Amino acid sequence: MRTATQLRLEAAWQALRQWLGATVLPAQCALCGIGCPQVLCPPCRAQYLGQIQPRCRQCANPLDDVATLCGRCLRHRPAYDDTVTAFDYAAPLDQLLLQLKFGARLALAPLLAELLHVAIQQQTVWEAPQLLCPVPLGPARLAERGFNQALEIARPLARLLDVPLQPRLALRVRDTRAQSGVAPQERQANLAHAFAIAPEHAPSLHGCHVGIVDDVMSSGHTVNALATACKSAGAARVSILVVARTPPH
């Protein structure tokens, strides 16, 4: 049950989001540029988002058959229990995330949350988490970028799912190099001991189902490291909710 203060804050955020949508984003599709009142035009939605792709239940990598788990997850089970993604991180949809992350087009975050919410609703088996936790940025990168794209997506997603958001549940205790700039064989070591659970929130994790929210999942080492920290603090289940999944090469 939301308090009156929470409702006022949500109304203010909604008004700000609408202002940003009108100010930051022109009245045209973010992908094809055609004039339309929506951020993404109906033809682009139908062309790029209309099909459901079979995916591994645990890591969300594409599958060619009816198996529920991919070979990699069968051989080496990650710390997280399941993953939902809205689309593959590939052209042209990757532009939506690039515009948000590096172009600071924050008005795209609600659209990405909506697309992720649609993907969640399409799951045949879905257990809602008890709270959402965005992947935190390190202090240096947060100061450089000015915002955490995972948090910007998690805010509207939490409202759509009606699940509490805890943005300060996890801390990035060690600044790491961006995973995109690290050799694949070094990515796991790059994130070793990078995350910790904030002491004041640790008691709430015992037996809890945590939903970790991020923009892009590539190797999975980032969300796996955070899931490991959650499980070590007592979480019973960890679900990954990620807008885009980089297909395996």
Rank of each mutant, 00 (worst) to 15 (best):
R8T: 09
R145I: 13
C36E: 12
S204I: 10
G207L: 02
V238R: 02
A109I: 00
E127Q: 14
A229N: 02
G138Q: 06
W126I: 05
L151S: 05
T222L: 04
P134N: 15
V66C: 10
A183Q: 11
P184T: 14
H117S: 12
V213W: 00
P247F: 13
V66L: 13
E186G: 00
L161G: 01
P110C: 07
A198N: 14
L100F: 09
L151I: 03
A46Q: 08
D82S: 15
P199D: 09
T124C: 09
V84K: 03
C59M: 13
I120M: 15
I240N: 06
L49N: 11
A189K: 11
D215V: 13
L25H: 08
C70T: 10
H193S: 08
I197W: 05
R145W: 10
R174G: 08
L142W: 07
T83Y: 02
A91W: 12
N148M: 01
L40V: 07
G21K: 00
E200C: 11
G50L: 03
V39F: 00
V163G: 03
I240V: 15
C36T: 11
P139A: 14
A11Q: 15
Y89W: 09
A104P: 01
L98H: 12
Q179C: 07
A196W: 06
D215F: 11
A46T: 15
P247E: 11
H193P: 02
Q51A: 15
R172P: 05
L171T: 14
F102V: 02
N61D: 13
A27E: 15
E114L: 11
L106R: 06
P136S: 08
I197F: 15
H76S: 12
E144N: 07
A233S: 13
Y80E: 01
R177F: 05
N190F: 02
A170K: 05
A30L: 06
P92K: 04
C36K: 00
K231Y: 06
L115Q: 15
H193M: 10
N61Q: 14
A158L: 00
P164D: 10
E114K: 06
P42G: 05
P167N: 07
N148A: 04
H209S: 14
L157P: 04
H201M: 06
L31N: 09
Q122V: 04
Y80S: 08
C230M: 12
C208S: 12
L151P: 02
V238D: 01
A158N: 01
L116W: 04
C208L: 10
A227Y: 07
E10H: 15
A192G: 00
L131P: 03
R155M: 09
P247A: 08
V210D: 02
A143I: 02
I240T: 12
C29V: 09
E152K: 00
